[in-house]
Write a protein that binds this DNA or RNA. Structure first.
Lengths: 228, 228
DNA sequence: TCAAAAGTGTTTTTTATACACCCATGC
DNA sequence: GCATGGGTGTATAAAAAACACTTTTGA
């Protein structure tokens, strides 16, 4: 039901922006970049990139993430489309925003510093360029929504982790304290984690067992994990 | 963190598509259109339109909806971005998909027939052009997700409705039978509807009270209405 | 009078929450 | 031994689900 033919229609610039989340030292972090072109050169932003005409927007996001992190198959979710005509003072640019969740510990060395990238605690994010503040806020909201019915820990934590580490991650995502006993029961009742024979002794004298997902595909549709 | 300057980047066509949902005679319906331009002229599709360079994507969607339905302020939600390079055989077109919920009864006359538009029961949707089948499926999924924590009835039903009508709407959205007693209790416990003094006698001898929202703004964040 | 849907009440089950308490161990 | 976080159990509260029953009234 198009009211103008394809030829008559104006084309426009399309970009993607990614909120790259990581988790380290009990805090949820986001990767921010020092912009190296005008306008707003030198200011902080989410990572972005153009969408080429021969790739879907998810492809563009994956390409940018690969370049930044060296990783394929990063967990990604659509956050929204930001398209106010004047959102980018350089030109009319429609941007599609994604969340990306990565395991900082395993990949920190290759990321931080390069591309002018630095991790920031999500509770202490400085002002960003354009509408990136708005995008970031919506990203965080989406992350919380996702975490409430999906074990996001498995993307943000190393492949083997303790229940306490997962709980602390949830504490930092939702900015509240989950009861250790109840959280453990809830998570284990989902039947998606198996206990390993290894223990982690860095956080307690007794040591706590490592867990790993039984099956990465079984981590969706878990019902509510936490109330929102 | 753009790797090419604005000038070097290829521009592209951006469109919106809307899944317009309505509810009538106990069935959830979607408005489909007979496409009047090539390619795929004469086949069925969702309603779409180009995004102009001086408007956000939501603006384009609202503009198209206004043209089709005559209505402003239609409830809209982002469904997703569909951008496979070959999704539209006519050209590379990135489309942003939205859900729109409208009250069929009040506006049917002005819609059906015009623009080659017709309402289809969501359980009997014929094949659509391009990737519109995929878009439609995702739209339905999003509608269910929204309905599980938001009283979507208030957009799909007339301004005054009975609890039974709302329940039947939920039955048709989720394709299951909600218990009349429990559904009533759940809805009324949300404290967002007020009972009117009028009764509707079309569905029962006894007649049932009409209800209306106390405040349109209070209909978000209601916690879970139905389990998903 | 009776069928049919509206509306209310009760019981049972499930789930969430609060919190007491034992366990293992490094200091 | 004892402080510390891991891990388990239990008691309570809240929510969801199942379902019995009462009300109203047109046919």
């Amino acid at each position: 039901m198009f009211d103008k033919s394809y030829q008559e229609q104006a084309k426009q610039l399309v970009a993607i922006d990614c909120s790259i989340f990581g988790y380290e030292n009990g805090a949820l972090k986001i990767l921010l970049f020092c912009r190296n072109i005008e306008p707003c050169k030198g200011e902080l932003s989410l990572i972005g990139g153009w969408v080429n005409i021969d790739e879907p927007v998810e492809g563009a996001a994956a390409r940018v993430l690969k370049k930044i992190t060296g990783l394929d198959h990063i967990a990604m979710d659509l956050v929204g489309v930001f398209s106010n005509p004047d959102r980018d003072p350089g030109a009319r640019v429609i941007t599609v925003a994604f969340n990306a969740l990565i395991d900082i510990v395993a990949h920190k060395k290759s990321i931080s510093g390069t591309f002018g990238a630095n991790w920031f605690d999500v509770s202490q994010v400085p002002p960003l360029i354009f509408d990136h503040d708005i995008i970031f806020n919506k990203s965080l909201e989406k992350l919380r929504k996702k975490a409430s019915h999906h074990l996001v820990g498995l993307d943000l934590l190393p492949p083997e982790f303790t229940i306490a580490q997962l709980r602390q991650l949830y504490n930092s995502i939702f900015q509240r304290e989950f009861d250790p006993g109840n959280f453990r029961k809830k998570i284990l009742s989902l039947n998606v984690l198996k206990r390993l024979d290894k223990k982690d002794s860095s956080d307690s004298k007794k040591g706590s067992y490592f867990y790993a997902p039984v099956n990465k595909d079984k981590l969706v549709g878990l019902g509510s994990i936490v109330k929102t």
